[in-house]
Design a protein around this nucleic acid. Structure first.
Lengths: 154, 154
DNA sequence: TTGCCTGCAAATCCTTTGCATACTG
DNA sequence: CAGTATGCAAAGGATTTGCAGGCAA
């Protein structure tokens, strides 16, 4: 699948900014870079703390983070999601379609890709007359190693 | 659609209440009934407005709705989810697993169920020797109505 | 130089909490 | 009757906005 390099992503971001007569600032760059480099979900607060630590000389405000996240989300460069009690979390949207097996015990992530599922998704979209832009598929559970460990403990 | 009848659900709810020494009130009943009857995702505000209209004589407070939703979520009777700009939405949890088509423009959520995808997931899990406990499948994009709107605006 | 951006603080919105009264079991 | 639940209003958090100075194009 077509993964974006960081350079390609920046290029895309800059073209979005240009179209909307907006500017490329160091704050916007840093936020996007963190989200790109670390394949994790961040709350605005997470990002704020991360930036304070990594860039102590930069006196960033939380408002800038909110504004930037909203801008990136509108531009479909990042997406947000929230389940249960957890707050809203953001992650890069423009990435290859890596689906995930996630072990809820040890946190290990196994990536996979499956043609059959992708194809079936397209059929479903057609049925509902829906234009798919991206998708998220996560299978949560317990990996082989953790199941072994659990057995031993018993 | 729901695997539980309303009576079964109420019975389950009452047993939860009993265990925790809590009481079965008209407010709790109404909220659960709305979520059961209308197979939709509600924000607390949505529910508040709905109840004000359907039960004008009942002077319900928004705090009660929040408290009840938290109680129902803790009890795993409902679940919450939030995508994109939309706030947190609640729906009945005790029903067959289903996945989501999410319109990134208007925030509408279309639910679907697909045997083929579920089956394929099991095959993938077997391949990696992984025990699936749950999964998340979201197809993001633009719904029919929003595509129409966009066309008109051009 | 011309706006857009930023940090700050104030404002706003959403959710939770404290309290006195009402209700369930 | 005891103890929980409710509505109300106030408190608490999270997010947005207004503003004056700073910066990208």
């Amino acid at each position: 699948m077509n993964s974006y390099t960081y350079e390609e992503l920046i290029k895309f971001f800059k073209s979005v900014l240009k179209k909307r007569n907006l500017k490329y600032t160091i704050q916007r760059e840093i936020i996007l870079k963190i989200l790109y480099d670390n394949n994790k979900h961040y709350t605005p607060e997470d990002l704020y703390i991360h930036i304070k630590q990594e860039h102590p000389k930069l006196n960033i405000g939380i408002a800038t983070i909110y504004r930037t996240l909203n801008l990136l989300e509108e531009s479909n460069i990042i997406t947000s999601i929230s389940f249960g009690q957890s707050g809203k979390k953001y992650e890069i949207a423009i990435k290859p379609h890596h689906d995930h097996l996630i072990c809820d015990i040890c946190g290990k992530i196994i990536e996979f890709e499956d043609e059959k599922i992708e194809k079936r998704q397209d059929e479903i979209a057609k049925k509902y007359d829906f234009l798919i832009k991206s998708h998220i598929l996560q299978l949560h559970g317990i990996c082989k190693e953790c199941r072994k460990k659990i057995k031993k403990e018993k």
